[in-house]
Simulated assay, not measured.
Amino acid sequence: MMETTLKQASRMNRESFKAFVDEHIVPHANRFDREEQLPFSLIANMAAEGYLGATISPQYGGLGLSMGVLGELNEEMGRGCSSVRSLLTVHGMASLAIERFGTEEQKLRWLPRMAGGEVIGAFGLSEASAGTDTKAIETTATATADGYVLNGGKKWITFGQIADLFLIFAKLDGQHTAFLVPRTASGFSVKPLHGILGTTASMIAELTLEECVVDREALLGSAGLGVPYIAMSCLDYGRYTIAWGCVGMMQACLDDCIRYTSERKAFGTFLKEQQLIQKMITEMVVNTKAARKLCEHAGRLKDEGDVDALMETWTAKYFASTSATKAANDAVQIHGANGCSRDYSVQRYLRDAKVMEIIEGTTQMHEIVIATNAYQSVQ
């Protein structure tokens, strides 16, 4: 009986998420891509639905969704637009860090406003010379009598153009440390970055911190927790949501291709009747189902607090992101010349999918981690 109730609740959640995406995102996603921005009206609608507080506990005004339901939300958002899903990811990373590592004062100051959409959070780890190698960050923090002074820069910051609060990682006395830096902080500036390959509406920015002054309450956790605990915790969450978003993108590829091949003819027959087309459709179907199952497994382990959840998330993100690239590549191929046109969404899926193989750990880094774990498990 309980299992049936949970399945019914899950179906209701997914139907609600799907309805929102079909109304507010799918019809406009290609325009978001062309304009390289999300409208504030959409963000307001997401906040009104509670989506910006998806990971935040109800005591701070959030939905407090389980990892399983959170995955379903990110799948639907990914089906509609990867840039929209990216907003959920980075905003969730920032709020997650505050709830897990912040003081009660920090939680009360920021989380209710983040849950309500009054404050948008962003994740500031990457630098021009520090991407996958997170320990190579060069931004520094110096303690003062009243707080801290930060100097350095961050690059490729998703939604950095509009975020109100940035989770910034810097070296404090040589130790990687996390800080909550408001957009209004003295010495803090933002430069929009345009012409990105994919997720073009994720409003990416470059940040400059030049004698940036923050108060004592800006310190999140304690010195030395920045990369090994806070950043890694956030990146694991990001990996999980991206994996689910890739499942949604694969579903979008499949839906578009089923529709197109059922309407388009070549050599007197519908494309869906050609065996090579059927082969590509079959691979999309099977890989989408397989990726979804890997994500569901990772989510279940996370909800159970299982230590294997971390590794299973790496596995899910690796398979989902590489499979999404293949599905999108085949989708463009199936659409032919139309697949290269901005009038069709499949070209956007392909560009977005390639980005998914880079962020929150490149495909190659995933291969190193997964293979290393496999060797260690048999020793």
Rank of each mutant, 00 (worst) to 15 (best):
K18P: 01
T5E: 15
M2P: 13
E49I: 02
R31E: 06
D22S: 05
H28P: 02
K7D: 13
N30Y: 01
L6Y: 12
A44L: 07
A9M: 15
F32P: 00
T55Y: 04
L42Q: 05
E36K: 06
R14I: 06
P39E: 06
R14K: 11
K7M: 11
S10I: 10
N13T: 03
E23M: 07
R14L: 10
G53P: 14
F17C: 03
V21A: 09
A48E: 13
P27K: 09
P39S: 06
L42N: 04
S57V: 01
A47E: 01
Q37P: 01
H24G: 03
M12N: 12
L42F: 06
D22R: 06
N30H: 03
A54G: 14
L52Q: 13
P27D: 10
A48Y: 11
S16H: 09
N13A: 12
N30T: 05
N30K: 06
A29V: 03
A54K: 09
A19Y: 03
M46Y: 04
G53D: 13
F32V: 00
A47P: 01
M46F: 06
E23R: 10
M46T: 04
A54C: 15
D33L: 01
F17N: 01
E15H: 11
T55F: 08
R11A: 14
S10A: 13
F20N: 02
F20Q: 02
L6M: 15
E36R: 07
L38D: 00
D33T: 04
H24A: 09
A19I: 04
M2T: 15
G50R: 11
Q37G: 05
R11C: 10
E15K: 13
L38G: 01
T5G: 12
P39L: 05
I56V: 15
G53C: 14
T4Y: 10
R34S: 07
Y51G: 10
K7E: 14
H24C: 08
I25K: 00
E3V: 15
R31V: 05
E35L: 03
M2V: 14
M12S: 11
A54W: 05
S41A: 07
R14T: 08
E23D: 10
M2R: 15
E3M: 15
N45F: 08
Y51R: 13
Q8V: 14
S57K: 04
Q37L: 05
R34I: 06
L6V: 15
Q37V: 02
G53N: 12
E3I: 14
D22H: 04
S10P: 03
A47S: 11
H24V: 06
Q37D: 04
S57T: 03
E36D: 06
S16L: 09
M12I: 05
N13V: 02
I25T: 02
I56A: 03
S16C: 09
F40N: 07
S57W: 00
M46I: 08
F20P: 01
M12A: 14
P27G: 10
P27T: 09
V26D: 00
